[in-house]
C-alpha cells in the first residue's frame, strides 16, 4: 500500500514568542517536526508494517524544513519530498492545500494520506480536510483509532474524536486521515534510522514541478501580529489554619470577587 504523510516543520512548543519588527519571532528556539505530525508519521509506519508498501513524507516549507523530513525518515519513512518555492512564502491554507494536493497527485498513487490534527504555529487545523476536498476523497478527520483497514476491499473504519464522544465512520480508500494524539505513541528514531536519514538526498519540487503556475495567489493576509496582553494577575495566597479554614477563605474570596 502506498502511504503519504504530510508533515510541517514548526517551532518547539517550549519556545517563547515575541513580536519583532511586526513579525513573529521565536528567538533561537529549535525547529522541530510539528508534534501532531509525529502521530501521523507513526500511524503511517504502523499501517505500512501491517500492510506492506511504502511511506512517503511530504512537506511544503523553506530550506530548513528538510530537517523535519529527515526526522520522518529517521523514524522509518521510506522517502521524502520537499515542496519549496519562493512563491509559497506568503501562502495561506488555500495555496498550501493546493500545492500538497498537487504533490500527492505527482507521487505514486497512495491509498492513504495521513495528516496531523493541526500545526502548532499557525493553529489552523484545516489542512487535512482541505486536501481531501481537493482530491475528492473522504476526509476522516480527528481520528483517534482505526479499528479496521482492509486493503483488498479498500475499506477503512475509524473513530473520530468529536467534542461529544466518538463517531464511528467507515469509508472507501483512497482516503485522507487526520490523526489526534490518542491514536498511538510515536516511536523514537533508531540509531540506524538517523544514520540513513542524515545521508538521504531529499528531492525538491518547485511550484512548476507540481504543475502550479497560476492559482497561487493567497486569499488571506496578516496586517498585524500582536503580543497578547500580559496577565495582570497577582497571585493572592490563601493561607492560615487547616484545610477547611483555607477552603472557606478561598470560597469567600471567590464569592467576593463574583467569580462564583
Amino acid at each position: 500500500m502506498n502511504i503519504v504523510v504530510c508533515v510541517k516543520q514548526t517551532t518547539d512548543t517550549a519556545a517563547t514568542l515575541s513580536v519583532v519588527d511586526g513579525e513573529a519571532s521565536y528567538g533561537d528556539a529549535a525547529l522541530v517536526l510539528n508534534p501532531w505530525d509525529e502521530y501521523a508519521v507513526e500511524q503511517a509506519l504502523l499501517t505500512k508494517e501491517a500492510e506492506g508498501g511504502k511511506v512517503t513524507a511530504l512537506c511544503l516549507g523553506p530550506d530548513s524544513a528538510e530537517d523535519a523530513l529527515k526526522q520522518a525518515l529517521a523514524m522509518g519513512c521510506d522517502e521524502a519530498v520537499l515542496i519549496l518555492d519562493a512563491v509559497f512564502e506568503s501562502a495561506d491554507t488555500l495555496v498550501v492545500s493546493r500545492a500538497l494536493a498537487a504533490g500527492i497527485e505527482k507521487l505514486d498513487p497512495p491509498e492513504l494520506v495521513f495528516f496531523g490534527k493541526s500545526a502548532v504555529d499557525s493553529d489552523t487545523g484545516v489542512m487535512g480536510p482541505q486536501v481531501a476536498r481537493r482530491l475528492g476523497w473522504p476526509s476522516l478527520n480527528l481520528v483517534a483509532a482505526i479499528p479496521e483497514l482492509d486493503a483488498s476491499a479498500k475499506t477503512i473504519t475509524v473513530e473520530r474524536l468529536l467534542e461529544e464522544g466518538r463517531q464511528i465512520v467507515s469509508g472507501r480508500l483512497p482516503a485522507v486521515v487526520s490523526v489526534v494524539k490518542e491514536i498511538n505513541e510515536p516511536r523514537y528514531p533508531s540509531f540506524m534510522g538517523i544514520r540513513k536519514a542524515s545521508k538521504a538526498e531529499i528531492p525538491r519540487w518547485s511550484a512548476a514541478d507540481v504543475g502550479l503556475s497560476g492559482q497561487i495567489q493567497p486569499a488571506l493576509s496578516w496586517p498585524e501580529i500582536l503580543a497578547p496582553e500580559k496577565s495582570e494577575a497577582v497571585c493572592e495566597l490563601i493561607e492560615g489554619g487547616d484545610a477547611s479554614e483555607i477552603a472557606r477563605k478561598l470560597v469567600d474570596r471567590l464569592v467576593e470577587e463574583k467569580v462564583i
Partner: peptide, 21 residues
C-alpha cells in the same frame, strides 16, 4: 467545533476563498 471547523475549511475549497479559524 471539530465538525464546523472541518466544514469551514472544505467550504473554502469549494468557493476558492480563505478560511480564518
Amino acid at each position: 467545533t471539530g465538525r464546523a471547523r472541518e466544514l469551514a475549511g472544505m467550504l473554502a475549497i469549494d468557493l476558492d476563498t480563505g478560511v480564518t479559524p
